[in-house]
Computed example of a mutant assay.
Amino acid sequence: MNAPSNANAAPLVGVVLEEQIDITVDQVCALCRVERTQIVHLVEEGVIDPMQPASAVAQWRFSGEALARARRAVRLQRELELNPAAAALVLDLLDEIAALREALRR
């Protein structure tokens, strides 16, 4: 039995949802399973940034990239018992390592 040919198949096109989502601070809290104050601390430490700074925390909106970074920060805080400032430092160092590895790959 021959496998069907994919020569005429259209290429698959995907969308990375985390790059295109726009979520509220309460949704970030729910997805990270934390209180709002913890997300506020992450913003204050520069771990994540609202898409458009607003004076009221309830008006903050975040990108999917910010959500992914918040999840990593929360995981670091839980597993290693880090405060927000230490989590920010660890994430910055991990980003730098990733950039250096990418530079080496090229």
Rank of each mutant, 00 (worst) to 15 (best):
G64Q: 13
D49V: 06
A86D: 08
I21W: 03
P11S: 04
E96W: 04
E102W: 01
A85W: 07
E35W: 00
C32N: 06
A56Q: 14
H41I: 02
H41L: 07
V40N: 07
Q52M: 11
A10D: 01
R105L: 12
S63V: 04
A85D: 10
R36S: 07
L80Q: 08
R101N: 13
E19N: 04
R106T: 12
A3C: 02
V13G: 00
R61E: 09
E81V: 08
A87E: 05
V43F: 00
E102K: 11
R69P: 02
L80D: 06
E18A: 09
Q20T: 05
V40E: 15
A103K: 09
E35I: 07
D26T: 03
L82I: 02
L94E: 15
R71S: 13
G46W: 06
P84R: 14
E45V: 12
T24C: 01
R75M: 10
V25S: 00
R78S: 10
L17W: 03
A103S: 06
R61I: 08
E81H: 10
H41A: 15
V16F: 04
D22N: 11
A9E: 05
L94Y: 04
E18S: 13
V43S: 05
R61N: 09
L67I: 12
P53M: 13
L91N: 06
V13M: 06
N2P: 03
N2I: 10
A9W: 05
C32Q: 08
R71T: 06
